[in-house]
Design a protein around this nucleic acid. Structure first.
Lengths: 224, 224
DNA sequence: TGTTGTGTCTACCATGTGGTAGAGAAATCT
DNA sequence: AGATTTCTCTACCACATGGTAGACACAACA
């Protein structure tokens, strides 16, 4: 009589992960009780513990789900390698910003993870990120040789910091933009992302290259 | 027999705040028990509760102490208004970066506060930050009129985002720089701060102005 | 039809938490 | 010297937490 008939809603495991992500992003891991997660899903606490026998294992599952979705994005990033220069930059940075802006809980959760368990996050970084940081860094070096990219850029440092800044800035954007009281949530995120992109762009490319690209785009628009 | 003789170490209240700051920055408010704070200070739990009758009041005291130290820095920032252009930018950004780099617990604690209690932080921002954000923004506008500063900069947005980015990037620097395994903690902070400054600078000033300033500095060095 | 596995439940527990009550030592004041 | 204030302590409590044990319902398969 008690069970909810296992309708097509199904997969309580997934629903638990989703609810946990939301709650942990908002309140933090320690402040999120299993009970609260159960309530959010509409189920008893022990049902949660059935899928994840410890709270720790739930944390790992939530994080794994997040990284999994990041891997969905990576192909798009690598695909962008066909383009070159500014166009490639735009593709990569747009993808990065879009990833966190679409669901800020991801960003918030990761920021919390960085603060709460820095050592574990370091490992994730070394295993998951090192490869593509170096790929992007190598493109930056190429750009430096051809004079499009500033010579005072440290390639690895730039990539790492840009990613980190995108993560943290978008995770905290809604709050730190309190001085723009008449902007909606979406507008704040859009504005923040735009400023991040602008900053990342100018700190990477020399002005003369950007101006040149602009004029090219301008003349192309005239053609069509 | 039990009391520790009240030596010149003194002021347990202050020691409690210091220990709390460290612990809360590292583990978060909820995950930091009063017991743990007491242990860190070397005192019983109830002695902590003597000074701060609730955990919440302790949190407020810790935050107040932090903002107080920020007010020590503000004068230096405003003093810098005597300079102009790039020199002023350098003063302000150096002060900002130094404030968080000198003690990253400040940054971490604030980031946590942003995540955990966004609404309260919004109020702090509106009350404490609005004034000087507008001051700096007005200088940016002046720089835009004279062509030194890029026209695509949104003054308030830039100031806000730069401060936020400095805060979060320095708070997470030690962890996110895991790909530079052979750098010490201090070197990582220095490197992060340098990159933040570089990025903030290039996203604000046009290249021609920066080049011009460089050549001026160069000739001045020749004089002396 | 009986058996087995899956999922949800009720009942319970040990532990750690924030917080209260109040005793007692040391310094300060009168 | 006696009174008062300041500070730290021991003892205790109500409560929420993560986690265990086991009953019960449903579906699928033999």
């Amino acid at each position: 009589m008690s069970q909810p008939a296992k309708t097509e809603i199904a997969d309580n495991r997934q629903r638990i992960i989703v609810a946990s992500t939301k709650l942990m992003a908002a309140k933090g891991f320690d402040a999120t009780s299993i009970q609260a997660i159960a309530d959010a899903v509409g189920v008893r606490k022990q049902s949660v513990l059935y899928y994840f026998s410890t709270k720790e294992s739930l944390r790992e599952a939530v994080l794994e789900a997040l990284l999994l979705r990041w891997n969905d994005v990576l192909p798009n990033l690598l695909m962008a390698t066909a383009k070159s220069g500014l166009a490639k930059f735009d593709s990569v940075i747009d993808e990065l910003l879009e990833f966190f802006a679409r669901d800020v809980d991801r960003a918030r959760l990761l920021v919390r993870e960085i603060l709460d368990r820095p050592d574990e996050f370091k490992n994730v970084l070394r295993k998951q990120a090192k490869a593509w940081v170096e790929i992007v860094a190598s493109f930056i070096r190429k750009g430096q040789e051809s004079g499009q990219i500033r010579s005072n850029v440290d390639p690895e440092g730039y990539v790492l910091q840009t990613a980190c800044v995108a993560l943290t800035a978008l995770g905290t954007a809604e709050c730190t933009s309190a001085l723009f009281p008449n902007l909606s949530r979406e507008e704040i995120l859009k504005k923040t992302a735009a400023e991040l992109k602008r900053s990342a762009r100018h700190s990477l490319f020399v002005d003369s290259y950007l101006h040149h690209q602009e004029s090219i785009r301008g003349s192309k628009e005239k053609e069509t």
